[in-house]
Design a protein around this nucleic acid. Structure first.
Lengths: 258, 258
DNA sequence: GGTCTGTTGCGTACAACGTATCAAGAGTAG
DNA sequence: CTACTCTTGATACGTTGTACGCAACAGACC
């Protein structure tokens, strides 16, 4: 089934320029076992190098030219494997999510879901660009390893005897929370890191982004001001993340009677 | 305090090119009452026109040139008011969030939080680009109207007698969920709208994006396959949103004893 | 009313990006 | 060795964001 004699069908469609209609899903294209010729470039290597750039210098440093340079290859070479930059980003996302290991089957649904959420947060902190993708498509694209994450969550809930709708709602709820919360955490960290305004000692004292400091001073947000002033865990994103997560898991247990 | 005689201080700093160090927060710059000269352009009009473009043709149609054309103005004119495209996006986001009205004070914390979440989802569905921003900074920037949303949430929880940490955790948890869930919903809708692959009747029957269909067929995701095949509310994002939201509200009530 | 001052908008220009297109190269099968 | 196919290179184009300097206008004061 691998190699035919004459007029062998093209083994891998060369990234069909995303022609509106028949967009074969990148993963489908990549699944053909790569018939081997002069193979200098592979999707894995492309993804690995791109992830390396993004980790080291941020997602905005990942340009097709920079990637090519890093790969020691001409600027257009990677286009044989990805149909455009969006595909590249999807490849990167999938590689990153590939770092997540499957949960051990023994644990209960709650421990499993909690572990997946916590480890996903750690993954995002390791690769902050996961929640800073410039594409919007890649940010939520169903890549194989990302779908695997949902699969694990659903398997964990199988024991609970929920309906299909309830199971999906539970998994998606936790997933949405993780995505939203980690995005906010990474953004906050970036805002704080970018501060350097002189004379804004308030910003450092209250550990707040300077833009936020000014907003607070307008007096439009008394409750916000009060709470942010007295909160003790304000600089403990892990506590915030896990507190919210535990609330959600409580809620699932309560409402779904599990 | 408004007009001095001679050597009057410059009334509005002309968008200081974002010089790393002293980044005055856009909102601070805009707060100076605009000393009136030949005012053809205002931040409000810029935001309004930009939002109009994004609503009609998607966020990728919003370029500085296109914006200038629509404003009937030279390409660089808007740079007097925004220091770059990121600022423009922030302006747009804030204008969109400005559509949200403050909740009525009478209701309890749960109804208020629920109403804010539901109405925020409707807002995002009205302006899908809110969760497709190419910047990542603008996507989570604390703009005045967005902070106002958090403020309302905190005021609603004031009656519940929670600690500052608990209050912030509750508001941020709901907010993160809304952000994550709506982003996924908008992305799914886009994926489905972009489908047109011939011969993929399965995609339509199961109302799944074609990329997802292929992934499922690999057999790597049996639980996912099973649940998505039997779920009845699979095409009812509102049900999914509200179910998850109610779970979270339940969880807050349970864990925080309110 | 004339002049002065500073803000507002315009025009040009450039570097960087994503990507289309075609030609050349490497490798294997016969 | 020859023919064929897949892979990479080179070149180039259109579009984007934006730096820079200059011209036009409004109002304040003499």
């Amino acid at each position: 089934m691998a190699g035919q004699k004459k007029k062998s069908p093209p083994t891998r469609t060369p990234a069909p320029a995303e022609a509106g209609a028949s967009r074969t899903s990148l993963w489908e294209r990549l699944a053909t076992p790569a018939p081997a010729a002069r193979t200098v470039l592979t999707p894995e290597r492309i993804a690995e190098v791109a992830v390396g750039i993004a980790d080291a210098e941020g997602i905005e440093a990942v340009t097709m030219r920079r990637l090519a340079t890093e790969l020691g290859v001409a600027p257009m070479a990677a286009y044989r494997y990805v149909s455009g930059k969006d595909d590249l980003l999807e490849l990167m996302v999938d590689r990153a999510y590939g770092e997540l290991a499957a949960p051990e089957p023994g644990a209960g649904w709650r421990e499993t879901l909690r572990g997946l959420a916590v480890r996903t947060r750690e993954l995002v902190l390791r690769h902050p660009w996961l929640v800073q993708l410039p594409s919007g498509r890649a940010a939520v694209a169903p890549t194989p390893n990302r779908v695997a994450l949902a699969e694990w969550g659903m398997r964990a809930l199988a024991e609970a005897g929920l309906s299909a709708d309830e199971t999906m709602a539970a998994v998606d709820t936790v997933g949405s929370y993780v995505q939203g919360r980690t995005a906010a955490e990474v953004a906050t960290r970036h805002l704080m890191a970018a501060q350097g305004a002189p004379g804004d000692a308030d910003a450092l004292r209250t550990s707040m982004a300077p833009e936020m400091t000014w907003l607070i001073r307008t007096g439009r947000y008394p409750a916000f001001h009060h709470y942010i002033g007295t909160a003790r865990h304000k600089d403990d994103p892990q506590w915030q993340f896990e507190t919210g997560l535990d609330c959600i898991l409580d809620g699932l247990a309560t409402r779904l009677h599990i």
